[in-house]
Amino acid sequence: MSKSIKVLIQGTGFAGQGHAEAFRSVGAEVVGIVGRTQSVVEQVAKDMAIPFAGTDWQQALEQCKPDVVSIATPGGAHEEAITQAIECGCHVFSDKPLTATGESAKKLHELAAAKKVKTAFAASFRYMPDVIYAKRIVAAGAIGEPLEVECISHFNLERDIPFGWSHRKEDGGGRLNNNFTHKLSIVTSIIGEKILSIMGEVRDDLGRAPIVEGVHNFKKRRDFIPDDLNDPELKWGESNVEWSYTVLAKLESELAEKPVSVLFKHGGLHPRFNEDHIVIYGSKGAIYIKGHYGSGPLYFYDANNDWTRLPLPDDIVDNTPQGEGDTERNWRYLIRELVKDIKGEKVAPYQTFKEGAQYQQLIDIIRKNDNWVDVSHLQ
């Protein structure tokens, strides 16, 4: 494919604009953008010099005739839009979660496979440079057999962030959809993609959030926290998703005789005492990456019982796309792989709707929260 790849964006907020810039960074042509509110989508299109702006997704598909669509709306709005795009023969780049349920996500994966379109699932923090370096170290056998992985994070999010999609299961909210997807992707990229078993505990520590009008950009939602939370006129929305989770998993690794144990512990509303981290323990050493999504730096524990900070290799640094932040750079990395694949170029395996559907089915299992054994009768 020698012609410029045409892209249609769904979503006008932080993600939609970020996806558009990411596709442009690899030479694709952004031909249109669709949003809920005409005035908003027209302004975003004007600011970003996108020729088509509208609120009707089906009309945009027919008029713009894109090669690829980029889905940058909350997960609860994905299913219909992605279905329509696949039926039109479009390749699809979708932010996480793929949909709000495992069943609907599986349907999208099966439809994409049947229609033979390419898909990319943006649980994309596996492309953090130090995560890529950790994968290389493990693959080289430097820590021996991988034995277990520990992922700990506490975000201390403001409890009074305005009520919205992130508070609702049916809209794709919850910490599993918006944190665990990235963590699982990071760990599978390092250890191995085959997930053998999983169990978990979830908890809603929030309860409710104030309803505030005018929130458009997800990253700026903190700016809309009401000054007076005791105002009797203030309305409240009820949360129905998890804000904390603990998940245990077992992964298969080609480098280990036994399944690798993984702990995912996340508190969305809880303060951290020390840094968030990801640690990979092996039979001969260990790797510690600072940061909830592996932002670094990376430390290696060797046979001398010392932790040593390792600088990133030049080739990993040079292969990292430019971008304002980690999220934007990781979008650009995955979109670069997708576009190369569409053009028929050779690329390393990347996450598709197969993983998006698998992750959503796992989240459904974890949310059942039915792994407890009643021991109250034991003396």
Rank of each mutant, 00 (worst) to 15 (best):
C151E: 03
E345T: 01
L61A: 09
G54W: 08
K135M: 03
V339H: 01
L298G: 00
D204A: 08
T181N: 11
E29N: 09
D227W: 03
V41Y: 06
T12I: 14
G173I: 04
L362G: 07
I71D: 03
W372D: 14
Q43A: 15
A142V: 09
A348Y: 08
L234Y: 07
I363N: 08
T101A: 03
V247W: 06
D227P: 08
R159V: 08
K96L: 07
A15E: 13
T12F: 12
K96D: 07
K118E: 06
A140T: 01
P51F: 07
A139K: 14
G172C: 05
E355R: 12
E170I: 03
E324T: 13
V131T: 06
P74S: 00
E233I: 01
E87L: 12
H292D: 11
R203A: 13
N230Q: 13
D227Q: 15
Y288A: 10
Q38N: 10
V279Y: 06
Y133V: 00
N305M: 01
G282K: 10
L108G: 02
S189A: 15
P226V: 10
N156Y: 05
D364N: 03
L196Y: 03
E355F: 13
K340A: 14
K135T: 07
C88P: 04
I363A: 07
K290I: 13
L157G: 09
G89K: 05
P349E: 01
R336W: 03
P162W: 05
R336S: 15
D231T: 08
L108I: 02
K96V: 08
K115R: 08
I186M: 12
Y359V: 14
L196A: 03
L184H: 13
H266N: 15
G54A: 10
G267P: 05
I71H: 05
N330Q: 08
